[in-house]
Amino acid sequence: MDLQVSIEKNEINIIHQNIMISISSNPSNIPLNHLLLYTKNRQLNGIGIDNHQPSVDFDTLITISCDFDFPLADYGEFFYQQLTDAKLTIAREFPAKKIPQNYINQLDDFYESVATILTAFGYPMKKIKKAPAKAQHRWRKEISTVEFFIDYNEAKGTAIWQKRNELKLLAGATLKKEPPLNKDGSLGFAAKFTQSLRAEHAKQIKNFTTTEDIIFKSVNEIGNFLYFAGTNSWLILKDVNGKTIDDYTLVK
């Protein structure tokens, strides 16, 4: 899992793809449009949304944000259900609600990513066995010469997964120009991450077209770079016959 981490005196900020997590022992305020986890002695004891003032005692506030695809309350409800299923005693700081069934898989992926990160940083969240299991992909030498073509959301390009941690985007790829915006007109974390990626490779881009081959670490990173993510990139990269990179590499 690739993370960007910055550590300050009373705060740790973590970015993974389009997810941003802040762990603060001295929060100056409780932000809007965030999922909130309250902890005491590194144990989760409450969950809230937006800038709700909690009823529980806490010494650390964990705020979580991303480009939320569904109402924030659905994320809070799903987290609450997962945490209580994991036998954690946790206060709900918002009304209960029913989550639409078609949201479950994406919410599950989001929860697993956050749980993995927070557990690694010393805030345990008992892992729930997933059903169905989250897709895993494995590089094999046989695919190292296969060209995968991208044609999605104004972006086009050709990529080769040449080594386990090296996915090469060939020169001449076309980037989507305009980033998606939040409802309030601001940039989401996926868009900000894309901007940082493009800034890193600014010398290899001219008029939204790559002028050199560029090496990325993952399929998702290429998706961010080309079209600001927002979809399952494993289904976007396809060979000349339309077979996806997911078909080639999915562990069954």
Score class of each variant (00 low, 15 high):
L226D: 05
G223Q: 03
L72T: 03
S233V: 10
H201W: 07
K130Q: 12
H52D: 10
T249A: 11
K97S: 13
D246K: 09
P31A: 14
E212I: 13
T39V: 04
F189N: 13
K206G: 00
R92Y: 00
N18T: 01
D67E: 08
E178N: 11
P100C: 02
M20T: 11
N153T: 10
S218D: 09
D184K: 07
V146N: 08
L44P: 14
T210M: 06
L37C: 08
V146E: 04
G76L: 02
E142D: 11
I117W: 11
Q195S: 13
P179S: 06
E11V: 12
S233A: 10
N33W: 09
Y80L: 10
L118E: 01
V5C: 08
K203F: 15
L237G: 00
S6V: 03
D239C: 08
T231L: 08
N41Y: 12
E200R: 14
A173S: 14
T244S: 13
V240L: 12
D57K: 11
K87M: 04
L83P: 11
K163R: 13
T89Y: 06
S196P: 05
K163C: 10
A173M: 09
I214M: 10
D151Y: 12
Q17W: 11
H16P: 10
E11A: 04
L35V: 03
E77T: 10
D247K: 08
Q17N: 12
I245H: 09
T211Y: 02
G172Q: 04
K252A: 05
R92I: 01
I19N: 02
I23D: 05
I104M: 12
N26P: 01
N241V: 10
L181T: 06
D108A: 00
L61G: 02
N105G: 03
F94H: 06
I62C: 05
G46Y: 13
D50G: 02
V5D: 09
I215E: 12
L32G: 07
D247M: 05
K129P: 07
N153D: 15
Y111R: 03
I117N: 05
P180C: 09
I30A: 01
A191W: 06
K40Y: 15
K156A: 11
K177Y: 15
T63I: 01
P54Q: 04
A86W: 09
K177P: 11
L118Q: 02
I99A: 08
F225H: 10
A155M: 07
K217M: 12
K127P: 04
K203V: 06
S144V: 10
I214S: 03
P54G: 02
Y248W: 07
G46I: 14
A73N: 04
I12F: 01
L72F: 04
